[in-house]
Design a protein around this nucleic acid. Structure first.
Length: 466
RNA sequence: UCCCCAGUAGCUCAGCUGGUUAGAGCGGGUGACUGUUAAUCACUAGGUCCGCGGUUCGAGUCCGUGCUGGGGAGCCA
């Protein structure tokens, strides 16, 4: 028995008059005493549900079909016909409806054909993909992920699966989750009373990765163009709509390029992904525009057409301090840009995506390339209207003596990074890369405002349900 | 972690300056009706008003405290 996807059935495939079988979950049932029921069934293949017309002469019409409620799983066989009603072009005239799975107690089934709050749906994260919103998010997330892989693949990048477990404990990107098999109640101790991680699984302290960047640089300096796309973990006590303890990050790394080359990639990349979603998810995007964020469609379309503004940090500070705006935090040289500053630049001043480049050395990481005068490093942030920073990246310091001096200044353990420094010893080249939070990208695309709603099972401080 | 806000039926919410028996819509059940579109109409069931303590003749309402959730900030992607 071959199964027709609802997406195809709604498009009249394989053909009118064909006998087809669809499988899915009931959204709504409407009865007509005149002799049939309408059952809306969805299977995740597209935004819309398929209308199944169930005639009263089905052998289980009174006993089963009329007892269907939201959430029941069904297997429907019938003839694909042009719809006799409005609202859809095609429907199924059923001659067999099997109930695969009942809803045990319809009174307590949490997903109803009505608007639920996102807060409530987070409590039923295992059932929320059955809603319009989360179905649409799931499809968009998939299409965006595919677009990311395709963008890089078409341009000769290799996808590098950097390790999830790492021994690097000071990449400077944030607090880390410990990975250990030691007995937490009675850990082995060294003579000085400290926990003896030499006894641990890996024979040393290990953590979940906060970034694949350092690892991917090694592959960059061999494969030329590479990227990571995988889970990333931060043990920070961040309670905001923009932070997760577990999220997915995209990190391209390009050899033989500089900061300007990187900015080119970042701009092409974002436009490519947005364009793909616009092309491949029109129904889902129409839904987001209608129900989630009225500007969702327009701002993506504008973004794809927009000319990115590029300016130095120094220039950004000048614009901010001459703006006459009252900011809660000062905008002065040496301080990082605040959310309010980023929003002013993108939403008020330029009204376009902005790439801010060359930040003060003191506020950026050790691996970023030092300018000749030492005041700045070759870092960039891509700021998007409505969300702020969406990409952060830099040209890497490829000169061994310079990076060693910086590590000394910051009192980093060079021994620990010896393999990383090897990359500067053996055939070093200028290279650059950036990091992009995948869920923040999905937030921007869909207009969803809480990052917990664009990942299937969110992990945040104090919560790891499901 | 800090600052604000909220918690009332399965869900979304109303409930006035404290005052009889706490309401509506949706969802569920029963029935009517209809090629219906989150159908419509009638009836019906459904409540530890987040927990604890206090003020008061009287608390869903006021105060304290705890818990949970949300928004904002910081950290950052």
């Amino acid at each position: 028995m071959s199964i027709t996807r609802i997406k195809d059935a709604l498009a009249g495939k394989p053909t009118i008059g064909a006998e087809i079988t669809i499988q899915g979950w009931v959204r709504t049932r409407r009865d007509s005493k005149a002799g049939f029921s309408f059952i809306n069934v969805h299977d995740g293949s597209c935004f819309d549900a398929l209308q199944v017309v169930a005639p009263a002469d089905l052998e289980n019409y009174e006993t089963e079909v009329k007892k269907l409620t939201s959430g029941c799983a069904v297997n429907c066989t019938g003839t694909l016909v042009e719809s006799g009603g409005r609202g859809q072009n095609f429907e199924i005239q059923a001659d067999k409806i099997d109930i695969v799975g009942w809803v045990e107690d319809p009174d307590t089934y949490p997903i109803q054909p009505k608007a639920h709050s996102f807060e409530f749906l987070r409590e039923v994260a295992h059932l929320r993909p059955r809603t319009n919103t989360f179905g649409a998010i799931t499809r968009v997330r998939h299409v965006a992920a595919q677009a990311i892989h395709r963008f890089f693949h078409e341009r000769g990048y290799y996808w590098i699966n950097t390790p999830i477990i790492t021994a690097s404990d000071a990449e400077g990107a944030g607090d880390m989750f410990r990975v250990s098999t030691l007995d937490m109640v009675n850990p082995p101790l060294k003579d000085n009373g400290q926990v003896d991680f030499g006894e641990d699984f890996f024979g040393r302290e290990t953590f979940l990765t906060v970034s694949g960047q350092l690892n991917v640089e090694g592959y960059c300096l061999a494969m030329s163009k590479v990227y990571t796309f995988g889970p990333t973990f931060r043990a920070e006590n961040s309670n905001t709509s923009r932070h997760l303890a577990e999220f997915w990050m995209v990190e391209p790394e390009i050899a033989f390029t500089d900061l300007d080359g990187l900015a080119d990639v970042a701009e092409d990349f974002l436009k490519y992904v947005f364009k793909t979603v616009l092309d491949e998810c029109p129904d889902d995007m129409a839904f987001f525009e209608k129900r989630i964020e009225p500007d969702a469609l327009k701002r993506l379309e504008k973004f794809v057409e927009a000319e990115f503004v590029r300016l130095d940090y120094e220039e950004a500070i000048r614009i901010l301090s001459e703006s006459g705006q009252k900011f809660e935090f000062p905008a002065e040289w040496g301080l990082d840009l605040q959310t309010e500053h980023e929003r002013y630049l993108t939403e008020t001043h330029f009204k376009a995506p902005v790439v801010v480049m060359n930040y003060p050395t003191e506020i950026k990481a050790f691996y970023m390339r030092l300018s000749d005068d030492g005041r700045t490093v070759a870092a960039l942030d891509v700021l998007a209207p409505g969300i702020g920073e969406i990409i952060g990246g830099s040209q890497r310091e490829e000169r061994l003596d310079v990076i060693e001096r910086r590590m000394d200044d910051l009192e980093l353990d060079k021994e620990h990074y010896s393999w990383y420094l090897d990359l500067r010893r053996y055939g070093t080249v200028p290279h650059a890369g950036f990091g992009l939070g995948f869920e923040r990208l999905i937030n921007y695309i869909t207009g969803m405002t809480n990052i917990r709603d664009v990942i299937p099972y969110p992990r945040v401080p104090g919560k790891a349900d499901f």
